[in-house]
């Protein structure tokens, strides 16, 4: 965690500490800002919200959305749910892993792409679906995925 990140995190803590049930909104604010929830921030969150570090660790790790390590420059999520399976997402997953040379929850060695599974994007009439940095793409064939990956790497 960089010093300027610590300062920004402290500002988020100040903004959220009085909010009822404010831990999730705070964690979202931190991850939206610095890309992940640094474990080094647990101490100051703990003091401000009067929670134990264990409780904060418990919440962060319970939810799939929160990361404790910085992701690659782009995050690609592939939907693994039933609707996408009915339209070939299993092959798409295999293609993505082979092309990128990584498994789920890993980042390519050049730091450009992190691959994650996701369970339903609500785009089930246009399966299979993926997201790139939260933007949804529908009816993604392996060829289209290659083009999307190339585009993401190009603007990295």
């Amino acid at each position: 965690m960089l010093p300027e990140q610590a300062a920004r995190i402290d500002a988020h803590i100040t903004a959220h500490k009085a909010l009822p049930g404010g831990l999730l909104p705070l964690l979202h604010a931190i991850q939206d800002d610095v890309g992940y929830v640094p474990e080094e921030s647990y101490g100051s969150i703990s003091k401000a919200l009067n929670l134990s570090v264990a409780e904060i660790h418990g919440v962060v790790t319970f939810y799939h959305h929160f990361r404790t390590h910085p992701p690659g420059r782009h995050v690609i999520q592939i939907c693994r749910a039933e609707s996408c399976q009915s339209m070939g997402s299993t092959e798409l997953e295999a293609h993505a892993k082979a092309t990128l040379g990584i498994d789920y929850h890993q980042t390519t060695s050049d730091g450009s792409i992190t691959l994650e599974p996701v369970y339903c994007l609500g785009n089930c009439a246009c399966s299979p679906a993926i997201t790139v940095d939260e933007e949804v793409y529908g009816r993604v064939s392996p060829n289209r995925l290659d083009a999307i990956i190339a585009e993401a790497k190009g603007v990295a």
Binding site: G21, L24, F62, Y63
Partner: peptide, 25 residues
């Protein structure tokens, strides 16, 4: 509006309430 965080079980109403309170779902 409160954002969830990718836990399917939080669609169950009591788990959802725990999550809204800022806890594990």
């Amino acid at each position: 509006v409160r954002r969830a965080a990718g836990a399917y079980v939080c669609g169950e109403e009591t788990s959802l309430l725990e999550s809204l309170e800022g806890k594990r779902g």
